[in-house]
Design a protein around this nucleic acid. Structure first.
Lengths: 220, 220, 220, 220
DNA sequence: ACATACGGGACGGCCCGTTAGT
DNA sequence: ACTAACGGGCCGTCCCGTATGT
């Protein structure tokens, strides 16, 4: 009785910090930023509160770091990564990504929604710094799409009479909106349907396309 | 001594309830559901906390009522109302609504985002009942779009080879996504751009359309 | 088991507030403002934390109220009250008060020191509002002494060639200093000695006094 | 990766200890003992927390050392030093010191008060060991005054019919009280006024003094 | 139908001290 | 001798809900 051995004491700041970021990311994704208490994150990460406030000035700073170091990387890797594969035109790559996404997500992921979108709606009016971090991520994402489309235009795989940047921001909005609606309806079918519609829309961006930007064919 | 007269005593339950709903809506729109404390709402409404818990079981119940009685009505009136005007085909009506929206919103409204979208992302994983209220609203909205498109198809103003319901849900997602992105970037220009892209997309749904569902023309 | 009846619920705001002020005064006197935790005060008063933050905005506001409503009244009643007795010249009254004070204080009171002096030294650099409350009290105290001395000068019981206000502030300083030193040395003898010296000093303020403001005679 | 050079490594224990004491003194003077966190002192001193707990057992021990090695020396040097000058009688020396003090202090020093007095009121009920350190300092100070007065009595420059020790403790109390009141009122004028009154009082201690222990003359 | 006093329970954020490491 | 990661605990604040009273 009374023998509760002291904690691990491993002295590995980088690992501790990383564990903290991951736990914070997961908890915030699950509960939202405000509902995720520091104690929740502490429990999830296995480190102590003292460590949290050693590595981060306050809960907000932890949140910023999560956006910059976890969410941003995750989003850009996930959506811009597929566009970098050589030998594939951007439209095909994007369509492939959309198709994969809807299926690959677990049920809970669909239920939890896109972490970036969640944070945007919850926090961007409450914390200007976090909004900045979010905006930076959104801008990088959109710019990645725009650059890919412009490369496609230069290579002749994307119609040249469209505004690549405008389409890029629309894509981001439509993707986030789809995640958002699917979260609200808790429905993978909805996410899939919207991603299909978006893929069809992309089809219309190909140079030869007659009827133009695709429309979802009748009868599912 | 001890003489400090109490607040107004106006025994008007309906008025009190209405004031409460409006104040709750405004405060939740401004701060989010969790950050909006009951005391905030009390202050905004001018009534007292006793009145709140007389009319509503708890803060959650107040939130549900806000979704059902304020947000839902506001959304459906705003987006489905224009479709009911006689003599206008649904596509033109929708394009008109999109054009108006981007301009009519005040700067703070753009900053605050769409209340329904905010609530969806913030709350639908935290409160299943509220998610239900949200889903109901989203479904009604989407169904309104679908019905209008189908009427258009029957009337010959909308192409018949497209899935009206699928397009309807896509429209809802794209609209909400656009509000969300614009909120994150705090940019009316972004909202306008996306709504223009969406309007162009709708253009492609007209029967005679050559190039198909419109694309944003080059050069701003 | 598990039957712990709810608290009293007496609904007597004035009494609650008074209990809070008294408990806060006592706890702050005992521990100092910073070391007196709100929980200490809650425990001492018997009310709950919710009640504290209903009656006072924060801990600081409670502290201000203690200064204004407890400490100030206590100091002014204690030191200026004796000067109001009719038929006694101010010097005699003051000398009497000094004599009584040193003896009447309990050992713990001497150990705890003068609450006003404690707060002055602990808090007046940390909280400007509290310093204001303290300064107000000190000024009222000093002014009370000055007015009494001036009345004495008018009545012929106090020498007219001295600056009453200057002497008044000196008396306040000497009294507070004596409490402070006695607290540091935890010695009633020291408090008594200094009050005697001060009483002798006052003797020299009488009109006829030859050798002038008294000095402590040799040989205790 | 992971390359971020540690702080200066200067292996100079005596210097480190001295820097720590000075920083602790300054920080405690500024904020009080309790409000001065170890991290504050660490930042002010430029050393690290490890160094603090290498040189001192805990925060309290650092505080004791500050009293013994900084505050005590400073007080005794400042007030007893002037009395050691050869060829000056103690009363004149003390009057000179009083005159100088009020003027020489910077505005912030007056605002911060006498460190010994601050510590006395804040800490002597909370920490018995620190109270001991304080009492020792006060006793030495008082004894220094008493010895000087007794030397004056032997030399014929101070009246022999007064109790030197009693006057000495009174002087200490009046000085500390004056600092305390001036701090509370944030007023140099008040400190000056009291020191003048005290100087006049000392005048009455001279052997030939007619009117006796001086009183502040009328008119400013 | 409403007003206000109040109960109780978290939560964010220090803050002191320890210890693995150099 | 000194650094910095970390442990654990407490404190002020706020917040939701209840209950008494009008």
């Amino acid at each position: 009785v009374g023998l509760h051995q002291p904690k691990r004491r491993v002295r590995a700041p980088a690992i501790t910090r990383h564990a903290l970021l991951q736990a914070a990311y997961a908890t915030i994704h699950r509960l939202g930023f405000q509902a995720a208490s520091v104690d929740d994150i502490v429990e999830e990460s296995g480190v102590t509160k003292g460590a949290v406030y050693h590595h981060f000035a306050d809960k907000a700073a932890l949140g910023y770091a999560v956006v910059h170091e976890v969410v941003r990387v995750m989003m850009l890797d996930g959506w811009l990564g597929p566009l970098d594969e050589p030998g594939r035109d951007p439209l095909t790559a994007l369509q492939g990504a959309l198709r994969q996404r809807a299926e690959r997500h677990t049920a809970v992921e669909i239920k939890l929604g896109c972490p970036l979108n969640n944070l945007t709606q919850e926090m961007s009016t409450l914390d200007e710094v976090m909004r900045g971090a979010i905006e930076t991520t959104l801008a990088a994402w959109s710019r990645g799409f725009a650059l890919a489309l412009e490369r496609g235009q230069a290579a002749g795989t994307v119609r040249r009479d469209v505004d690549a940047r405008k389409i890029a921001t629309f894509l981001v909005a439509a993707i986030e909106g789809s995640y958002g609606i699917a979260k609200g309806a808790r429905s993978r079918a909805l996410l899939r349907s919207n991603f299909e519609t978006l893929a069809a829309y992309l089809e219309g961006l190909r140079p030869g396309s007659r009827r133009g930007p695709g429309l979802p064919a009748r009868g599912h």
